[in-house]
């Protein structure tokens, strides 16, 4: 058996099985019929038109974007500080920090969300002002940023910062000119992962959303419980396109190099 020749076929098969469901959703969104079926019954953009006139979905999309941007920004600051601290402290303390920062990945998302829900009500805050929702999303995104930044700082030599300081650079300039460029790729890819995870998060949003608000996954779920039109596929396709565009923009602006 010639493995090198089989490898591309296997790769294609894996990609096909991973991407086929997405392809089905995208094709179903162009369905001219009234039901969410595959193959589509004729081709049409009618469900995209319906979606762009549906204020409920557009509001949910904006809510998702706001929460994802806010949670990723907060996590970027906390995750970066934690990664820098882990690099500079003793190995024992670094392990404790690492465990704490990655704990949300170990616990099932729904358990974290239930815990937060009861915690915030016990604190008297409840789900008001989307505080609980934001904290939940920060917890979701934090491990991705911490792990990526930590990884990019693995080969970091603290003497480089010392050299900059000894040449007269202030702490801020040292961070901006020496540390930041070295961890840029880790921070950017961590933020990208964090944003996508937050944007798609269901369980956390489901339990912690403020009264009267909804993120896009929740809105889609509520919609699909009682409505089975291809509008849901159109919303999903739009969401996939937006995520894809964000990845491309990030790659272009921050120059992430994906390993070949």
């Amino acid at each position: 058996m010639n493995m090198p020749r089989l490898l591309p076929v296997l790769c294609c098969a894996v990609y096909f099985f991973l991407l086929a469901p997405i392809l089905v959703v995208v094709l179903a969104s162009f369905n001219a019929g009234a039901f969410l079926t595959f193959p589509p019954q004729g081709l049409s953009l009618r469900w995209y038109r319906t979606f762009f006139h549906n204020a409920v979905f557009l509001r949910a999309f904006i809510e998702s974007m706001e929460i994802a941007v806010a949670a990723t920004s907060i996590s970027a600051v906390i995750g970066t500080m934690a990664a820098l601290f882990s690099m500079r402290t003793t190995p024992a303390l670094a392990n404790i920090v690492r465990l704490g920062m990655t704990l949300p990945l170990v616990l099932p998302e729904v358990l974290t969300a239930i815990g937060l829900l009861f915690f915030f009500y016990a604190m008297g805050i409840g789900v008001h002002y989307s505080v609980a929702l934001l904290v939940g999303h920060v917890l979701l995104t934090l491990p991705f940023i911490y792990i990526n930044v930590s990884t990019s700082l693995r080969s970091f030599d603290p003497s480089w910062e010392l050299a900059a300081r000894s040449l007269g650079a202030s702490p801020f300039v040292t961070f901006y000119r020496v540390t930041m460029p070295l961890m840029k790729s880790g921070l950017t890819s961590g933020c990208l992962f964090g944003f996508i995870v937050s944007f798609d998060a269901f369980s956390t949003s489901f339990l912690l959303k403020d009264v009267g608000t909804a993120t896009l996954p929740i809105q889609l779920f509520d919609y699909l419980r009682l409505n089975f039109t291809p509008e849901a596929a159109a919303v999903s396709t739009f969401s996939i396109i937006v995520t894809f565009l964000i990845v491309i923009m990030t790659k272009t602006i921050f120059g992430i190099r994906f390993t070949k």
Binding site: A55, V56, D222, L226
Partner: peptide, 14 residues
């Protein structure tokens, strides 16, 4: 604060 279901229910309510 009142509740309803998603999709066409929400649209009708709003």
């Amino acid at each position: 604060v009142v509740t309803t279901y998603g999709g066409s229910w929400e649209t009708f309510w709003r």
